[in-house]
């Protein structure tokens, strides 16, 4: 199996994990007080902002031991896009409104996701 095939498969599996909420241990509370779910391992590995936020110095957990990650200044839609990027590296710009794209850029800057901006 070539490594590009492997990457393809890995991305698909990560996407599935995100969509199915398998073993999620992070609850993200977005601007609309909606809740998104994600995996702390992926967030830590992919973004230094989350790495700090989920570190033992700063972590917040609910009674079930899930991490609580509040991000009131980012909308659910934008956050979803960011999560998709973190899990799969893919952002599908064509189907997005200009407004959402702009918001995403601002959020990416705050979180230090320089590659997403590019």
């Amino acid at each position: 199996m070539s490594s590009s095939n492997y990457c393809q498969e890995l991305i698909q599996d990560f996407e599935k994990a995100l969509e199915n909420y398998d073993n999620c241990d992070v609850i993200i509370k977005t601007g609309e007080h909606k809740e998104l779910r994600a995996h702390s391992f992926v967030l830590r590995a992919r973004c230094s902002y989350f790495k700090k936020a989920l570190s033992s110095d700063w972590e917040e957990r609910d009674d079930n031991g899930n991490y609580i990650l509040k991000k009131p200044n980012i909308s659910t839609e934008v956050f979803q896009l960011i999560l998709r990027y973190l899990y799969t590296g893919v952002v599908d710009c064509d189907q997005l409104s200009k407004d959402i794209i702009l918001q995403s850029l601002v959020a990416a800057d705050e979180l230090g996701l320089d590659k997403l901006i590019e």
């Binding site: 700090k52 700063w58 917040e60 509040k70 991000k71 200044n73």
Partner: peptide, 9 residues
């Protein structure tokens, strides 16, 4: 007692 998200923001 501090919130990382708030301070960072």
């Amino acid at each position: 007692i501090l919130s990382f998200e708030e301070l960072y923001r």
